[in-house]
Amino acid sequence: MANYGKVNTLSGIDSAYIAGLIDGEGTVSLLRKHKQDNRQVVVSISNTDRPLINYLLEAIGAGKATSKRTYSERHTPSFMYAITNRHALDLLRQVAPHLGPTKPGEPSCSLPTTSGSPRAMADTPWV
């Protein structure tokens, strides 16, 4: 079920926990749904534990949860939480202090310091 509300302000514990989920089970990517579309920021987390996905929906207050198709009866049913565009940026701003570099020597997470349209953000300094 999709929820297009505002992203909730996360507590320190929730933001650290969600950052760990993004780091361990999730992805942060730029996707283009159609060739002529602009890219969208997408944060997604996949897991086989439906209550965990429900927790993300409740804690974050925006995004959607979907079931992933199983192609074999031996596969465990899995679920995915996804949040896109400005909502994804709002979430990333809150969890960024808890996201570290992926490899030694790489900078940690950097995000634009202002919100707004993607065109306005093109000339925005990054932190």
Rank of each mutant, 00 (worst) to 15 (best):
A88M: 01
S117T: 15
C109H: 00
M80Q: 15
R86T: 11
G105E: 01
T84D: 02
L91P: 08
G116S: 10
G116R: 12
H75T: 15
T76N: 12
F79I: 08
H75E: 15
G100S: 12
S115A: 07
R93H: 11
S108L: 01
Y81F: 14
T124W: 01
T124Q: 13
L92T: 06
Q94Y: 11
T84C: 13
H87A: 13
C109S: 05
Q94N: 12
I83L: 15
I83A: 02
T76A: 09
S108Y: 06
L91I: 10
H98S: 02
G116C: 10
P101T: 03
K103G: 00
A88L: 02
P77F: 09
F79M: 08
L111M: 07
A122N: 06
C109M: 14
T84A: 12
G105I: 04
M80W: 09
T114R: 12
A96D: 00
F79L: 02
T84P: 06
S108P: 14
Y81G: 04
A122D: 10
H98W: 03
H87T: 04
R119G: 13
D123F: 12
T84K: 09
G100W: 07
Q94V: 11
H75W: 15
I83K: 01
G116L: 11
Y81C: 06
E106F: 02
P104F: 06
T113Q: 14
P101V: 07
N85G: 06
